[in-house]
Simulated assay, not measured.
Amino acid sequence: MTSKETIPADTESPVGASLLAKAFSQPPSSLNDAPLSPAGSRPHLSLGPTLDFSEVSLTLGRTTILDKVTFEVRPGSVHALVGPNGGGKSSLIKTLLGQMPHQGRLSLQWPGEPGIIGYVPQALEFDRGLPMTVDDFMAAMCQRRPAFLGLSKHYAAAIGEALERVGMQDKRKRRMGALSGGERQRVLLAQGLIPAPQLLVLDEPMSALDEAGIQVFERLLGDWRAAGITVLWIEHDLEAVGRLADHVTGLNRRVLFDASPKLALTPDRLLTLFSTHPRSAA
């Protein structure tokens, strides 16, 4: 049995955000619930949803941000979204999360009951003088209990494991403002793991990572693929996309190509994609 949810067009109702908020109303689940395979990855237990963007358009004032964007994200795949700055990638993500009105149809087709959406933003803006530790941040993001009361017993194990997976377990008591940009990005990756999502939306997660952090991210990406999680991944590093993505959509206000990395990331298509004014759809 499948479940289908459609993000309504021409509305500012935060449908996607409501789905994301389910994280705070469901019981905590350990990241160790599924046994590891000999290779260290998790078995393909259940698929994430299919994402269907059908003629999704967005206009702000007289400016067209998205122009009849149509493509599909297959369940359990790592789907990269590439394109120039200002090409509409982040705006498309905001329509998915219910943060911006749109025209057209945007639907999520779940293999069973609607699941959890995880979101990892590109950067974290905050007052670096705040006395907020890594544990405080994780508590604020992952539990209902106020962060100043400390970690909830229900979430402490999952938070500890998530920080361990991103290599931040030994810096839990450090202030967020004292971390490097790459370390803060790792913490953002950790909060995206709790509760375990079936759909994960990543907005340039590699932008601030150092080499060790990139290795952590690539390992996580392999784990998500093995677990059947659907990943929609905005990325500027085309070399990484070519190695790690299952499918690539090129977006510059409209879809210019939608294919496997080998077929998508050709010189001609990339030239068209990063031109100021797209010449033609591929």
Rank of each mutant, 00 (worst) to 15 (best):
V69H: 05
D170H: 13
S3Y: 10
A80T: 05
F71P: 12
A227E: 01
Q198Y: 00
Q169Y: 02
L19V: 15
S152V: 09
T272A: 13
R184D: 00
G192S: 09
L66Q: 02
M132T: 14
L19M: 14
A9M: 11
M100I: 09
H102W: 09
R128Y: 00
E113F: 10
P205F: 01
L58A: 10
L199P: 07
R184W: 07
R174M: 07
G87R: 05
F126G: 09
P38M: 07
L270P: 04
L97S: 05
S54F: 12
F53W: 14
M141V: 12
R184L: 05
L220T: 03
Q103T: 15
F24S: 13
I116R: 11
G213M: 08
K22I: 11
D237S: 12
T6A: 08
R279A: 10
I7H: 01
T95M: 11
V216C: 01
S54D: 15
L221P: 03
G150M: 04
F257N: 01
S57A: 12
E125I: 14
A80D: 02
L189G: 05
S13V: 15
P84D: 08
S41A: 07
R175K: 12
P131M: 03
A212L: 03
T230V: 03
L202P: 08
F217W: 08
F274G: 04
Q109V: 15
G167I: 04
F148T: 12
L31I: 05
E5H: 13
F148C: 05
Q122D: 06
G181M: 05
L45M: 06
G160I: 06
R145L: 06
R225W: 00
P205V: 04
M100Q: 14
E72T: 15
H79F: 08
V82W: 00
V187H: 00
T6I: 14
D10P: 03
P35A: 06
T249L: 04
V73D: 00
E161M: 06
A281F: 05
G98Q: 10
L202E: 00
L81K: 02
I229M: 11
H79S: 11
A196K: 09
N85Q: 07
L130C: 04
L45T: 12
L238A: 07
G76C: 07
E113K: 15
L200C: 02
V134P: 00
P278R: 03
E204Q: 13
L45S: 10
G98P: 09
A156L: 00
T59R: 15
G242D: 10
T63R: 15
A17D: 08
S91L: 06
L271T: 13
G115F: 01
E161S: 09
H154F: 01
Q169T: 10
G192P: 04
L51G: 04
S260G: 15
L58F: 08
S18F: 11
L209S: 02
G213L: 05
A178M: 06
D136H: 10
L263P: 01
S54E: 11
R186S: 11
L108K: 11
L271G: 03
G177L: 04
D136V: 12
